[in-house]
């Protein structure tokens, strides 16, 4: 992650707060990243997204409609390769979890430093899920709720014991490096476990949405 790739990372910044948007844009550009588009609300973000083709979208959750969760869903649908990094001021639990289920792969609070932001953008671009301990706690809770369901579905995702163990360590604030050392695994394996948990959650979300749509008699593709 310390190595800057040959071509600069193409980033899109979506935030309705102009001061904040400028600051993030400036920081990213100063670090040599390519800010290909900015947007102040969900509508213009989705309008500019196809032409800009960013690798990473730095997205505020609380933006004028459509909100961050809907924007994430739509962007990931159009381009499954895009990485969405959520940058939220309030860190509202339910919103963050909804965005992650919709396909976001990173989450950072706005009070994070410039270095943390740059690091997060680079890691997300490299395909690393960027977790905060808080987000890991939410995801653990979500899987627990799924398995507590009194009428379980065989299609419901289950975490393996190892995945749960890794996620729990992330929630306890351990870095991937520390987890790898503790469990005697490679750094890459730890990342894969985390990625898998996110993948299962997003898959479950899609299945649920489709099931809901079919139950309601709506057309699905």
């Amino acid at each position: 992650m310390s190595e800057e790739p040959a071509a600069p990372i193409r980033v899109m910044v979506v935030d309705d707060h102009p001061m904040w948007r400028d600051a993030v844009e400036r920081d990213l550009a100063a670090a040599g990243l390519d800010v290909v588009a900015v947007a102040a609300d969900g509508r213009s973000a989705l309008a500019r997204f196809p032409a800009a083709r960013p690798q990473v979208v730095v997205l505020d959750l609380q933006i004028p409609a459509p909100d961050g969760v809907e924007v994430t869903t739509e962007m990931v649908r159009q381009d499954p390769e895009v990485r969405v990094l959520i940058l939220s001021a309030s860190g509202e639990h339910t919103d963050v979890l909804a965005a992650v289920k919709a396909g976001a792969t990173g989450y950072l609070v706005k009070s994070a430093s410039r270095e943390e932001l740059l690091d997060a953008v680079r890691r997300v671009a490299a395909g690393d899920p960027v977790f905060t301990p808080g987000l890991a706690g939410l995801v653990l809770g979500e899987f627990q709720r799924i398995s507590d369901d009194p009428s379980p579905d065989p299609d419901d995702p289950r975490l393996t014991d190892r995945e749960t163990e890794v996620l729990k360590m992330v929630a306890k604030g351990m870095s991937y490096r520390q987890i790898a050392d503790r469990l005697v695994l490679s750094h890459r394996t730890v990342q894969n476990h985390v990625q898998n948990t996110l993948g299962k959650l997003q898959m479950h979300n899609r299945v649920e949405l489709t099931r809901y749509a079919i139950e309601r008699g709506l057309d699905v593709e």
Partner: peptide
């Protein structure tokens, strides 16, 4: 909505 705006500004000033 108000809290979110205030938090944004506070985070920006902090940063």
């Amino acid at each position: 909505v108000v809290h979110d705006g205030v938090l944004q500004v506070l985070a920006l000033v902090q940063r």
